[in-house]
Design a protein around this nucleic acid. Structure first.
Lengths: 111, 111
DNA sequence: AGATAGCGCAACAAATGGTTGCGCATTGGC
DNA sequence: GCCAATGCGCAACCATTTGTTGCGCTATCT
């Protein structure tokens, strides 16, 4: 019996990186470019650009050219999928923890 | 304003790795050793051992010597903390998505 | 037209996740 | 009691990821 649900590893590892989580955080407040994001993060523009490639590959963000800028925004639908996976794993583990707790209580009662 | 709550990056990246998530899954079903885990996973015992070091460092598992074996078990308390972080980030993003949706609806209505 | 701002590409460094190979300790059968 | 087998830890090595710096192209603004 498997406890954790099947999860898209690529999507999960995309949101697993702390820098990418902070980028998503910033992008949720509005469109940003690689340059503007790097100004608010402790990494260089190029590092941000690489992360944007990763996030784009799993569909969490999309970039659109606007003049000489490339503005990125969060894809709501795909972020909702990611959130669903987080909550799915979380509640699976939580359920297992509860079960263990109930068993422990049952054993204690039968002592 | 920050959207995602402050999260323990070490704890998060510990559960971010797919192999470690599967190890936790197996360990939730009962104690295991590095060798027994590696038999159920597509990686070598040494890879499993390294992951166990990582999981131990963040307190998600603890190992106890039993003869020549070293049996690992999940630390319920710390796993509960990890679950709380997952659900915390998930619901923060979810809340933000809902807010965006409400704003979009409001704009649509005012058209 | 020329200075500037934004971006992409390439080369490099460090950390991570994986492998193989080795040696040491404990255990169990004879 | 001995010896083979089992389980573990350590070290060397490889590929990928995450970060850096440096360079050059293109588009914009005066």
């Amino acid at each position: 019996m498997s406890v954790t649900p099947d999860v898209d590893d690529d999507l999960w590892s995309a949101i697993g990186d702390p820098t990418r989580r902070r980028m998503l955080d910033l992008l949720l407040a509005g469109e940003e470019t690689a340059t503007s994001l790097s100004a608010r993060l402790p990494v260089t523009r190029q590092a941000v650009a690489k992360h944007l490639v990763v996030l784009d590959r799993v569909g969490l963000v999309r970039g659109a050219l606007a003049g000489r800028e490339k503005r990125y925004r969060v894809d709501d639908t795909q972020l909702a999928v990611a959130v669903a996976q987080l909550e799915s794993v979380g509640s699976a583990w939580d359920a297992r923890l509860q079960r263990i707790k109930r068993i422990a209580e049952a054993i204690e009662k039968s002592d």
